[in-house]
Computed example of a mutant assay.
Amino acid sequence: MKKTVILGTLLLGLSFMSVAQSTANSIGKSDPKAKAILDGVSKKLQSLKSLVANFVLKIEGGSGNNVMDSQKGTVYVKGSKYKVTMADREIICDNKTSWTYSKDVNEVTVNTIDQNGQSMTPAKLFTNFYDKDYLYRLLGETTEKGKVLQQIELTPVDKSKNVFKAMVDVDKKAQTIVRMKIFEKNGNRFTYEITDLKPNGAVSESLFTFDAKKYPGVEVVDLR
């Protein structure tokens, strides 16, 4: 699995993750029950000053359901700024500039943030992004480890996207996303499971800037 694919999907669905589209989706309407749940999650997240979450990313190939790879990571979010750390890379954004650091080659790629871009970022989970870019419906409720989870299916309005569906599980009582599973047209599946979530934790502003001095010999690829 190429790392660039993993990175792109991480930005699309972090955080926290039916073959045919539903009748509601096919006519371009979303389920008001699902909207109420997503609005509740969005409202709670926007009320937080900061957020630190540990997650596990599981990657499945298109040929079967066996897990091809599993990675642990942590995401730090403060307003529109975020940092994602994983075993092989770091992704940092201060809402103006993004830095993607690849540990194995000691290289960082620098980009300017497109404020009108359609790609998903951890910070966008603090907004009602779903109203514009996705159609959604409530599939039902299940119970896991004593928690009632509400499962919502999201499908992108733009059908040209490589991702054709995402399944989001929301903790009904806590109003937080505990799992998101992303489905690509090529058969790949990416599941993000939140293992620990700390609201309003101490998050330093220095986390959201890449300091090259802390990475001796780093090669900088500036694409701005």
Rank of each mutant, 00 (worst) to 15 (best):
N116Y: 07
T155A: 11
K147M: 04
L149S: 05
E141G: 02
I113W: 11
V110P: 02
P156F: 09
G117P: 07
L125E: 15
Q118K: 06
N116F: 14
K132W: 10
T127N: 05
D131H: 11
R137H: 06
F129G: 09
P156W: 09
K147D: 10
G140S: 02
T121S: 13
I152Q: 12
F129S: 11
F129D: 14
K145R: 15
V110K: 12
I113V: 15
Y130D: 09
E141N: 13
D131W: 00
G146M: 05
T109I: 09
R137L: 02
T155Q: 04
L138H: 12
T127D: 10
E153R: 07
K145I: 01
I152P: 04
N116D: 15
L154F: 15
T109F: 08
M120W: 10
D133M: 09
D131F: 00
P122K: 07
D131V: 02
Q115W: 05
R137T: 07
G140D: 00
L138V: 08
D114S: 14
L125T: 14
V110N: 05
T127M: 02
Q118H: 04
T112P: 01
Q150T: 13
V148N: 12
T142P: 02
Y136C: 00
V110C: 03
E153A: 15
Y130M: 06
T127Y: 04
K132I: 13
T121Y: 10
N128R: 06
L135D: 05
L149G: 03
T121H: 06
D133C: 02
A123T: 06
S119Y: 06
V110H: 03
L138R: 03
K145N: 14
L135H: 08
Y136F: 13
E141C: 02
L154E: 09
N128V: 12
M120V: 05
G140E: 01
A123F: 07
I152C: 04
E144W: 07
G117A: 09
G117N: 06
Y130F: 15
V148L: 13
L125Q: 14
G146R: 07
L154K: 05
K124T: 10
G146S: 07
L138I: 02
L139C: 00
T143E: 08
K124Y: 12
G140N: 04
T112W: 03
K145W: 05
T112R: 09
V148C: 12
G140L: 12
P156E: 08
Y136A: 00
I113R: 14
T143M: 07
S119D: 08
T112D: 11
I152S: 05
L154C: 13
T142K: 13
E144F: 04
M120H: 09
T112N: 08
Q151H: 12
T121D: 12
F129P: 02
T127G: 01
Q151L: 11
L135A: 00
T143P: 00
